[in-house]
Each structure stands twice: as structure tokens, then as C-alpha cells.
Amino acid sequence: MQLTNRSKQVSNKEMTMAEKMYLPSIVQGLAITIKHFFMKKPTIQYPEVKRYLGPVFRGHHVLKRDEQGRERCTACGLCAVACPAEAISMVAAERKKGEENLYREEKYAAVYEINMLRCIFCGLCEEACPKQAVYLRHDRMVPVFLERDDIVYGKDKLVERLDDRYVRMNSEVKATPTEPSLTKAAT
């Protein structure tokens, strides 16, 4: 198999006088390296410049709300079961009267915690969820934490904020085979 046209057959024939002088090949080599000196560098300066990671990137978790702003999660626990790293835990509670505008289902998650040190961002929770409640954002990463207390993310950090709704813009691409693609209207 030939990958490039630049491969050279290795031989142990005796070097000619010109090759023994080293200088011509050294000059050649210097020319190559100085060419690279002036080339455009492909580096992306990460914290300042962030590149688009694609529509299927699995980043920060989000607990979705529906179009009326109610939490979709019904605390069925399927995500916790599906999670291979056992990062998810939750406590279920029953919806009281008058809370219909907060929770969509009669049962909801009073506590929903993801341990970000355990999470491996595999996206199986997203696949397992029957209510389309948990997603891994494609546009945001979990930030670096400096304190041990910051590791476990509770509902305060996970539930989608109404002023910062998450839409997976490219409706053509499905994040996972089972997921019905989200459009702006479906939020």
C-alpha cells in the first residue's frame, strides 16, 4: 500500500563524496525548516477561541423544560439505571395541587444530582430518557471546578433556565438514533 509519493527506498550503498560532505543535505533541511517557520500555524488558542465541536458533541447536561416552561422529568430513574458510571441519583416526589405549571407529570424529581467526576459523557441517559428531559448540550462544556463541593451538580445547575433555552439547531442531525430531532417549535 502506498500512502504518499514521498517514501524512499532505504539502501546501504556507499555515500558519494557530495553526500559525505553533509552540507548539501543540511542546506536542504534548513530550507525545509525555515519554510515551516513562516507557515500559518494551525493552533487554535483554546480558552479565547473555541471551535464548533459539531451538532452531536456531548457536553453539559441540561434538564429540559417543555414549551410551557414545565420540567419534563418524571423521575422514572431510567437514566440512573442506564448510566454506566452510576453518576446520576434522584429523589422523586409527588406533584401538589397548584404546581401544574411547574412540573409536567404527576411525579417529578425533587432532587436530581449528577456527579461530574463520575460522568463519562456517554449520552446513554439521553438515550434512555422516555420524556426527552435530559440532554447533553452540544454547545457548552462542563467548566473546570476548583472546589470539591462543586463536583456534584444539583437541579440548580442542571434545569434549563427560561432565559437560556437549549435548542439543538441542526434539525437534520440526530444526536442519537432514538432521539426525535428537536426543532425550535418543540421546545
Partner: peptide, 22 residues
């Protein structure tokens, strides 16, 4: 003299066999 020697030695050197295309 050295440049001339180098050039002539290059010319006299057996042409390296073209790599057999695999």
C-alpha cells in the same frame, strides 16, 4: 575543487535503483 569533486562523484555514482513499486 571540493564542489567539482562532489559533482563528479555524484555523476559517477551508480544510479540508485528506482524503488520497486509495491
Amino acid at each position: 575543487v571540493m564542489v567539482v569533486l562532489a559533482l563528479t562523484s555524484n555523476a559517477r555514482a551508480p544510479k540508485s535503483q528506482a524503488a520497486p513499486q509495491r
